[in-house]
């Protein structure tokens, strides 16, 4: 089982400049994907998840174009082949 994760510019220092990385998560949820990312790219998890284990306020996660805040947050399932995007929040206007 594998998912693809799109890394924003601001976090590519952790991935050696890679914009897209493939991950085989231990647990098929967003939280599982982040744990697996952390194993390959140490330090990246604390940029995404707070010390209390919640998604950071100014970061958005999308699984196949759906904002996980409308789904189950970090517990949202990540089906095989899913495209996951990590996008810093922008206010728009």
């Amino acid at each position: 089982m594998s998912v693809s994760v799109r890394i924003p510019t601001i976090l590519r220092t952790y991935t050696g400049g890679e914009a897209n990385v493939d991950v085989e998560p231990g647990e098929a949820t967003l939280g599982g994907v982040i744990d697996t990312l952390e194993a390959s790219y140490p330090g990246i998890k604390q940029r995404l998840v707070s010390d209390t284990g919640e998604m950071r306020r100014f970061i958005n996660f999308y699984i196949n174009d759906d904002d996980v805040r409308f789904l189950e947050g970090l517990a949202t399932p990540t089906p095989d082949g899913a495209q996951i995007s990590i996008v810093p929040a922008v206010a728009g206007g």
Partner: peptide
């Protein structure tokens, strides 16, 4: 919100290297 997200993802890409997005990287 989809458009906004796309613009965020365009930051740092080759096609948009000389683009100043007024409400993203110039926000």
């Amino acid at each position: 919100d989809d458009v906004n997200r796309l613009c965020s993802e365009l930051i740092g890409e080759e096609v948009s290297a000389d683009w100043g997005f007024v409400n993203v990287n110039l926000r």
